Simulated scan of single mutants.
Amino acid sequence: MTIWYLTDLVGTSVFAISGALTALSKKMYHDLFSIFFIGFVTAIGGGTLRDIIMGSHPIAWIRDPNYLIVIVGSVLVAVFRRRWWLGALKRPLLLFDTLGVGIYTILGLQKALSAGVNSWAAVLLGIMSAIFGGVIRDTLVNDLPVIFGKDLYVTPCFTGAVIYLSCTTLGLDPTLNFMLSAGTITLFRLLAIRYQWSLPKIE
């Protein structure tokens, strides 16, 4: 059980909680299956699409039952401790989504590079890993996907991915590189939300 495998499970958990909290924010208390489904697709959506594009089979959550166990456990934590979030639901939603984006951008990038994908295609696959589950989540609950909002979303992912590639070229320790790159994405995204940073509009 490597540190990268454990990190992948942590990212899966974070995204599952994000999906479950989104479902709870839509008052889906009466339908536990719907909450599980939203948590599930949020957690595995991006990684599944990445693996399909790369032709990587079997897909991780199909091969390894630990992913499903983590998703179920994470959704249950979100549901049964939901009173923690009541009254301030938007903040934990943003926090868990941002943590998941930071972790999965770099994990997805690493997996693509390990599969022999060229560097820039690996960056795109890493970003896809991070954002696609959230796109599915927001679409299913009838929200505008976050990537189409005014706050910076893809830009922090791209920045962190480029930092990872640059530090890899410089020979930085992989664990430190991961922490630096994923941390940059998370901090950049949180600052973008806090100060409402956005790119110039195309008129």
Results as ranks from 00 to 15, higher is better:
residue 2 T to S: 15
residue 3 I to D: 07
residue 3 I to L: 09
residue 6 L to R: 07
residue 7 T to L: 15
residue 26 K to D: 01
residue 28 M to R: 01
residue 32 L to M: 11
residue 34 S to F: 12
residue 35 I to S: 09
residue 37 F to Q: 05
residue 38 I to Q: 04
residue 41 V to M: 02
residue 41 V to G: 03
residue 47 G to C: 01
residue 47 G to Y: 01
residue 49 L to Q: 08
residue 50 R to E: 07
residue 52 I to E: 00
residue 53 I to F: 06
residue 54 M to H: 13
residue 57 H to Q: 06
residue 58 P to W: 00
residue 59 I to K: 01
residue 59 I to F: 08
residue 62 I to Q: 07
residue 65 P to F: 05
residue 71 I to R: 04
residue 71 I to T: 05
residue 76 L to S: 03
residue 78 A to F: 01
residue 83 R to D: 13
residue 85 W to Q: 08
residue 89 L to G: 13
residue 91 R to F: 00
residue 96 F to K: 12
residue 106 I to E: 02
residue 109 L to T: 13
residue 110 Q to C: 10
residue 113 L to D: 12
residue 114 S to Q: 14
residue 117 V to E: 15
residue 120 W to L: 07
residue 122 A to D: 02
residue 129 S to Q: 04
residue 131 I to F: 07
residue 132 F to R: 05
residue 132 F to E: 03
residue 133 G to Q: 14
residue 137 R to S: 05
residue 139 T to C: 08
residue 140 L to H: 00
residue 149 G to V: 02
residue 151 D to R: 01
residue 154 V to E: 02
residue 158 F to K: 05
residue 164 Y to D: 08
residue 168 T to D: 08
residue 171 G to Q: 01
residue 172 L to F: 11
residue 173 D to L: 15
residue 174 P to L: 06
residue 177 N to E: 12
residue 179 M to R: 08
residue 179 M to E: 03
residue 180 L to G: 00
residue 182 A to S: 15
residue 185 I to K: 13
residue 186 T to H: 11
residue 187 L to W: 01
residue 190 L to I: 12
residue 196 Q to T: 05
